[in-house]
Design a protein around this nucleic acid. Sequence first.
DNA 1: GTCTATATCCAGATAGAC
DNA 2: GTCTATCTGGATATAGAC
Lengths: 199, 199
Amino acid sequence: MTVQPTRDRRAERREATRAEILQAAWELAREQGLGGLSLRDIAAKIGMRPPSLYWYFDSKHAIYDAMFADGNRQLLERLDAVKLPRDPRAALKRYLGAFMGFALEEPARAELLFQRHIPGFTPSPESYALAEAALAGAVKVIGEAGVTDQGDIDCLVAMTAGLMDAQMSNDPGGNRWTRHLNRLVDLLVDDAITGSTHG
Amino acid sequence: MTVQPTRDRRAERREATRAEILQAAWELAREQGLGGLSLRDIAAKIGMRPPSLYWYFDSKHAIYDAMFADGNRQLLERLDAVKLPRDPRAALKRYLGAFMGFALEEPARAELLFQRHIPGFTPSPESYALAEAALAGAVKVIGEAGVTDQGDIDCLVAMTAGLMDAQMSNDPGGNRWTRHLNRLVDLLVDDAITGSTHG
DNA sequence: GTCTATATCCAGATAGAC
DNA sequence: GTCTATCTGGATATAGAC
């Protein structure tokens, strides 16, 4: 019998090139917006011709999907690394603050992950599962702060997203909206807790 | 001298055709999304060839701009027609509720007016002035409810937009998020008023 | 006013040589 | 693996006849 190598150098190289393509895609998205991404430009950026990309990805949507998964993995990693204070309320503020910081530091990434306006693109189930994992993490921290009612959770999430959107659209780089996060968290959590003990 | 007619029938007809073009554009935007709008389809819808549209509008962006102005005029009209209760707090709820209802009833219109997703499109100053007039109306009603601090206004606006976005994205046609509007308005306004008397 | 015809440019994707 | 060459189809916009 033939001896099997323990590493598949070819697969490794392929993975490396895939990563290179994705990195080029992110850079272009940053420079000219997510919608303006073209296979031409991606290929040019890494010294390839457009058709060569098809050896690594089945379609343009497949690239978007890989970016979507990639971005969500970055989000999960970031949120996992957050040092949460022992006080649950403070932990929630820290967690949502980290989330907002993550979104604001790269608008193109936030656009792909949190808004959905790429024409025909829908994330694959595997990629979408990553996004749901991130949301589940938030729900856990919210729950530990005493907010378990679905309506209250919805309010917290919508409020956070509202501040984030306003910040990104109207004052990128500033803090005109984000600075209200902690105050609004207190307001909503207090109200949720009061409501739950009375209702 | 020649006798001048009091009406310019040619101009009237031209305006009518412009309106017809816009109506077709709205219908297509409703059917296939705002981004998918093409001059081909607009022309086809009213029995014209694409080049003929250029007699009525200078470019595709000019059509978007006219739609933007049109949508904002509809918004102003709607908000003006709202019967406001005498109680300022109730009036604010009614006003913001009307705003959300307006946005939710036509997602394509809301996309054009309240999110900014069309590649190279920026509203003309004249059209943008209409949008600012609508916001000014909201600020007035908010102020009458006792909220005058810019930060508090920002929170109210961002919160409303957050609920609206979540509703449109995740539960179009439902009320999972919108149903919390009145409660959150109370929460924010109470806090704003309390804060202003103490600070 | 509306048309035909066309210019120009771009996109994503495939076939097949090397 | 990467290429050249090409397919297919879309877009906005312009020129000029009628």
